[in-house]
Write a protein that binds this DNA or RNA. Structure first.
Ligand SMILES: [Mn+2]
Ligand SMILES: [Mn+2]
Ligand SMILES: [Zn+2]
Ligand SMILES: [Zn+2]
Lengths: 134, 134
DNA sequence: CAAGTTAATAATAACCATTACTGTTAAAGT
DNA sequence: ACTTTAACAGTAATGGTTATTATTAACTTG
């Protein structure tokens, strides 16, 4: 009863993937849409959402949610994020995995398949700006 | 020029606060609404949202966002969460603050005002269930 | 390579958690 | 009690995302 669907390689998917890979700023679907439209002016936002979800589930990119909005990350390796409350910038943070915590969770019989650390605050630029205005 | 607004103590706010304080399960606004309606049948969902936001900004409860949806936490002390992908349960995790990471961020001139760790996976119950079905 | 098949697309509507608006109610000060 | 106005109930609007559908184009087959 298994119907195998062969996947097609579309220009849309290739361009959207390339846009994310070329982005160093964790863009939203809308931002990716705007950038990809330069290449394919007829591109549809719905396609962008669908392809991004697909790429993420294939493990080729990562989805990161900030303030209830999806952003996309060209990096798929283990790292975390600092989010500036002032300018909204999302920056990568390299952090060693907290083995102590993982062991504790695993002792309860839980299976952890993803760990996410987020740090909120002010980036140096915004911290400085707010300091001088005071 | 300062116009001071005196706050009023309403039954709505008292009941909503009590519902959260009595909840051990990180309920959503909708769930809090359902529970509070037992006490105040005419309660409005909009009021629940507004009061929850107010209570959170007063530091009396905490908001925790999972899958782009707000949940509310009776606890306001430093702790983190495990989210089961199967049953959706949100469980508290006690974890020591990762000083190493914080120092690293602070060295960049950043100011961190909130740290959030989330662990996703399967709780023991769901892990067991999925194992026997296989 | 032309014709046929159907996965993926563009365009658009629907969804749903949350927020904004508006006329009414009631908490607190006098 | 009377007044003031913060907070309320009810409802409409918002916005990011997902679903639907007719059309297009990537791949298969002859
Ligand atoms: Mn990143
Ligand atoms: Mn908690
Ligand atoms: Zn900043
Ligand atoms: Zn579970």
């Amino acid at each position: 009863m298994e119907v195998k669907k062969r996947k097609r390689n579309t220009r849309q998917k290739a361009v959207i993937f390339q846009v994310v890979k070329d982005s160093h700023d964790h863009p939203t679907a809308e931002e990716i849409y705007e950038r990809a439209k330069k290449e394919i002016p007829t591109l549809s936002l719905g396609t962008v959402y669908r392809v991004l979800k697909e790429l993420a589930s294939e493990g080729k990119i990562r989805e990161i949610i900030v303030n209830k909005q999806s952003h996309f990350d060209r990096r798929t390796d283990f790292h975390h994020h600092f989010i500036c409350r002032e300018c909204g910038k999302i920056e990568d943070i390299e952090t060693p995995l907290c083995r102590y915590t993982c062991r504790k969770v695993e002792q309860k019989g839980y299976i952890v398949d993803e760990i996410e650390y987020k740090f909120y605050g002010l980036c140096s630029k915004c911290a400085e700006k707010l300091d001088t205005n005071k």
